[in-house]
Amino acid sequence: MKMYLNSIFADPERTARLMDIAQSSFLPLLKGAIFYTIPLTIITFIVGLVLAILTALARISHVKVFQIIARVYVSAIRGTPLLVQLFIIFYGLPNIGIIIDSYIAAVIGFSLSVGAYTSEIIRAAILSTPKGQWEAGYSIGMSYPQVLRRIILPQAARVSIPPLSNSFISLVKDTSLASLVLVSEMFRKAQEIAASNYEFLLVYSEAALIYWAICFILSIFQQYFEKKLDRYV
């Protein structure tokens, strides 16, 4: 540590080189974040949420087959490492002739993961809505899908916003795993830059700072939303 700092500040030439690298790598990293990391996060979260709602509904439905499918899905995804899932999709599937673009593979892998983990959040939120809410909906003639969409899910959404925001923030960081299936998201950019100039500490720290900044901004949004939703309930 001391040596590193010494080497930076004792040697003006090296200092200048590091400053230069920090500057020149910032834009590519930021581009990686803006064009890959953030869209990947948003797309997978939306697809994942849809999966999660379907899975939660399957879990609480009275149809045995739906229940079993949902349980197996959640269990399989939660019981295996995300990295292994990504490798199966990107490197494994070509063996049986299914070749998937790396970005799409990442979207599929992360969505499946988000879907499984957040389905439990949504299921709990739906179950936490009082039975009287279903009955009040039915009593004015609403159908199951109508009660679900108009009465239950909006209330469940309020309950699940805090845990869902946590999942979203985790996902931002998890997308760095996509570098291992060759998606040129921010962390892969960082690896490429560092490999060319050997300043691993500097470049990876820079990437870390950008992740931190994104998550920090997200947590501010999270607090804002929670306050807003809390008002009348």
């Binding site: 009082p130 809410q133 009955e135 009040a136 009593s139 309020r158 009348y232 309930v233």
Partner: peptide, 12 residues
């Protein structure tokens, strides 16, 4: 039309 003991209004 049903009126419940615990009202069951939609809180949102």
């Amino acid at each position: 039309g049903m009126v419940f003991q615990s009202y069951n209004l939609f809180p949102h």
